[in-house]
């Protein structure tokens, strides 16, 4: 009987002490982990859509900027600012769209002055390889640089973007998300300017 009690006590003490240590380590590493996830998962796309930046937009990013508030529904984005000669010239933020198989995670860069796209990259998707997945290829994403809200439409509908062959739904999902992002930008330009300290 004494043996059993000893066993239970020892195991409980070991588990409790290790558990407490772990939750301490977790609380120390929580912020750095969040930062490195942003840096390595979104970082490459952020840098790619902000071609003119001279700063490190990931280091300078602003978390959880409230852009709109409608009937208790908040639209919150993390904003990555691009600075040139010390002045903020463009911002990047993430938008989501609906593809053929699932959600599309898209990073867009917007020029502060003109409100036009500085770049677009599809970061996460579950589209079919060889069809919808070609949204990540230069032939598709290069078309977006320099486009304004009105241009972000398929070319056979009067816009400036050629759809990916055989993947119209994916193309439209990307276009819809980018367009919504640009509209969001033009509606809440002041708040974005305020958050990144420009204007």
């Amino acid at each position: 009987m004494r043996d059993i009690i000893k066993m239970i006590v020892v195991l409980t003490v070991i588990s409790t002490v290790m558990g407490a240590t772990l939750s301490l380590v977790e609380s120390i590493t929580r912020e750095p982990i969040k930062f490195s996830k942003i840096k390595f998962v979104k970082g490459p796309a952020v840098v790619a859509v902000l071609p003119e930046c001279e700063n490190d937009p990931i280091q300078d990013y602003k978390e959880g900027v409230v852009l709109e508030e409608k009937a208790g529904q908040k639209i919150i984005k993390s904003i990555f600012p691009a600075r040139k000669n010390g002045k903020c010239v463009a911002v990047a933020f993430e938008v989501t769209g609906q593809g053929f198989h699932g959600p599309l995670g898209i990073m867009i860069g917007v020029d502060l002055k003109t409100g036009k796209l500085t770049g677009m990259r599809v970061m996460t998707h579950t589209e079919t390889p060889g069809l919808g997945a070609r949204a990540t290829e230069p032939a598709f994403y290069k078309q977006f640089s320099g486009l304004g809200i009105k241009d972000v439409v398929l070319s056979d509908q009067g816009g400036k973007v050629d759809a990916i062959t055989g993947a119209t739904i994916t193309s439209q999902g990307v276009l819809g998300a980018v367009k919504a992002g640009l509209q969001l930008f033009s509606r809440s330009k002041d708040k974005i300017m305020g958050a990144v300290g420009a204007g």
Partner: peptide, 22 residues
Amino acid sequence: SYIVIIASFVVMVELFMQAYFY
């Protein structure tokens, strides 16, 4: 007991690597 101890240190390594060597 050994498994609990070893697994705890492994979780620590996981957390540190995510934070500093992603």
